[in-house]
Computed example of a mutant assay.
Amino acid sequence: MKLIVMSDNHGDKETVKAVSSLPADAHFHCGDSELPYEDETLASMIRVGGNCDIYSKYPDEVVKSINGKTILAVHGHKHNVKSSLMELYYRAKEKNADIVLFGHSHLYGAEMKDGILFVNPGSTMLPRGGNEPTYAVIEWDETPVVTFKNMGHQVVESVEIKKI
């Protein structure tokens, strides 16, 4: 399974086009696109609303089953992800999620907790922490591998997630 995930492009359509055109089983946008829900640029993406999305058609969360994995996508602002992943962890448990996708902090990262993979793709426009703009590629066959790429599609960091 291959998923491509982006977040926090804050109105920039070019980054959405660049990321959504890549081959994958599914494309996710974790909010703060600042584009209307119906915008054709987002048409191929599974999307949620963020704190900067003013259009009411955006759902707060989406749960999808793809290749036998249950995926929960949120923005993260309603789960206080800048402070802790605990609220999001409990929501993932409620939804029986295998993978949780979220944004909001503009910081990329991935971790496994109790068999649940949490991935924040970072921001394609306004990254924080001295990072460059990123999106995430999740490949999960035997073991999940999360690769963060810049807008030139070059690898910034790649992490093979192993259960301990």
Results as ranks from 00 to 15, higher is better:
Met6Ser: 08
Glu14Thr: 12
Val119Tyr: 09
Ser123Lys: 00
Asp8Leu: 00
Asn150His: 11
Tyr37Asn: 02
Leu22Pro: 11
Gly49Cys: 06
Lys78His: 07
Leu35Met: 13
Lys69Tyr: 14
Gly68Lys: 03
Asn51Phe: 01
Pro59Gln: 12
Ile161Leu: 11
Pro23Glu: 15
Ala97Glu: 13
Lys57Gln: 12
Lys78Gln: 12
Glu132Asp: 10
Thr143Leu: 12
Ser84Pro: 05
His27Met: 12
Val16Phe: 03
Glu111Arg: 07
Gln154Glu: 13
Ile54Trp: 14
Gly68Ser: 02
Lys2Leu: 02
Asp141Glu: 13
Ile66Leu: 11
Met1Ile: 12
Tyr89Trp: 06
Lys78Asp: 11
Glu87Cys: 04
Glu139Trp: 13
Pro59Gly: 13
Gly31Leu: 05
Phe28Arg: 08
Pro36Cys: 02
Glu157Asp: 12
Val156Cys: 08
Ser83His: 08
Gly122Leu: 08
Gly49Asn: 11
Glu34Thr: 11
His77Lys: 01
Asn67Pro: 06
Ser105Gly: 03
Ala73Gln: 05
Ile99Gln: 11
Val63Phe: 14
Lys17Asn: 08
Ser105Thr: 10
His104Asp: 11
Gly50Glu: 11
Ala110Val: 13
Ile138Pro: 09
Gly130Ile: 04
Ile116Phe: 02
Ser158Phe: 05
Thr15His: 10
Val155Phe: 01
Ile66Gly: 09
Pro133His: 03
Glu139Cys: 05
Glu38Leu: 12
Val74Thr: 12
Asn51Cys: 07
Pro127Arg: 00
Gly50Thr: 11
Val63Pro: 14
Val48Ser: 08
Met86Arg: 10
Ala18Tyr: 06
Ile71Met: 07
His77Asp: 15
Val5Arg: 08
Gly68Cys: 02
Ile164Thr: 15
Ser7Leu: 04
Asp53Ile: 03
Gln154Val: 01
Ala110Ser: 11
Ile46Ser: 07
Val159Phe: 05
Pro144Leu: 07
Tyr108His: 12
His29Lys: 11
Lys78Leu: 10
Tyr58Glu: 07
Cys30Tyr: 05
Asn67Ile: 08
Asp141Thr: 09
Gly49Tyr: 01
Leu101Pro: 06
Tyr90Ser: 14
Val48Asn: 00
Asn80Met: 09
Asp98Ile: 06
Leu126Ala: 14
Thr134Phe: 01
Asp53Thr: 10
Leu35Glu: 15
Ile138Met: 06
Val63Tyr: 15
Lys82Phe: 00
Asp12Ala: 12
Lys69Ser: 14
Tyr58Trp: 02
Asp39Phe: 00
Thr41Val: 13
Ala43Asp: 15
Met86Ile: 15
Lys78Trp: 02
Ile116Lys: 04
Ser83Phe: 07
Ala18Leu: 14
Val146Met: 02
Asp60Pro: 00
Lys163His: 09
Ser65Tyr: 07
Tyr135Gly: 04
Ala136Thr: 07
Tyr135Ile: 03
Tyr108Val: 08
Val155Leu: 06
Lys57Leu: 10
Ile99Tyr: 05
Val156Ile: 15
Glu38Asp: 15
Ser105Glu: 06
Lys78Val: 03
Val137Ile: 13
Glu139Tyr: 05
Phe118Lys: 10
Gly68Val: 05
Tyr108Ile: 05
Ser44Cys: 03
Asp32Asn: 09
Thr124Ile: 01
Gly50Gln: 04
Asp114Phe: 00
Glu139Ala: 05
Gly109Val: 03
Glu132His: 09
Val19Met: 07
Cys52Met: 13
Pro36Tyr: 01
Glu38Ala: 12
Val62His: 09
Val63Ala: 03
His77Pro: 01
Lys162Gln: 15
His75Ile: 04
Leu101Asp: 15
Gln154His: 04
